[in-house]
Design a protein around this nucleic acid. Sequence first.
DNA 1: ATTATAGTTCGATAGTTATCGAACTAAGAA
DNA 2: TTCTTAGTTCGATAACTATCGAACTATAAT
Lengths: 94, 94
Amino acid sequence: MKIDKKDIQRAEIFKVLSDPNRLQMIRILYQAHRELTCGEVGEKLDLSKSTVSYHFKKLRKVGLTNTRKEAQIKYLSLNMDTFEKYLPGFLAVL
Amino acid sequence: MKIDKKDIQRAEIFKVLSDPNRLQMIRILYQAHRELTCGEVGEKLDLSKSTVSYHFKKLRKVGLTNTRKEAQIKYLSLNMDTFEKYLPGFLAVL
DNA sequence: ATTATAGTTCGATAGTTATCGAACTAAGAA
DNA sequence: TTCTTAGTTCGATAACTATCGAACTATAAT
């Protein structure tokens, strides 16, 4: 049996979720009930800003987050559609 | 903020799910509606038996599967409790 | 006792990941 | 123009991953 293309995409999402820091970022965004800047999230996690940027890029790349840029500030939020499609019910138990 | 212990466990599960072959194994087990042997699953995936054994060990280790051994044959099945706890609704959209 | 079947473990390898600080870019403030 | 703020990109590094074949263990069959 050949590997399903859909499974590759799914696996990509799981790979992004397979890091404790990224999971925490997601929880922070989920509980904030508003957009947050990279800096705000990074501050809470005790990671260098380059590392935070690295993680945010990964989240963005698989469509788990949305980005809105205003001047030099970047606002992050969860992309609910992706969670609903691939992981319905997940955020509720996070 | 320190990393949550629960997130580490969660991340472990996602790491195991972040491989297309393992996702396919899960789907095969889910759709079979019965226990399957390592050989049966391995056959469908065109992987060496050592590789299949490696993957099954990982699935077992994080509690995603159950194992029942009868003579030299090992029967695999999904551990629904784990899916329900960490990924409710996931199997339904798989 | 030999052979066959089902699965595990080992060693090697090639590829990927998370992390940091340093250097960079972009935009606004003084 | 110079300075500050927010974030990105670039090495470098240490750790981990998936894969295979070969050698192994355990059980059953001849």
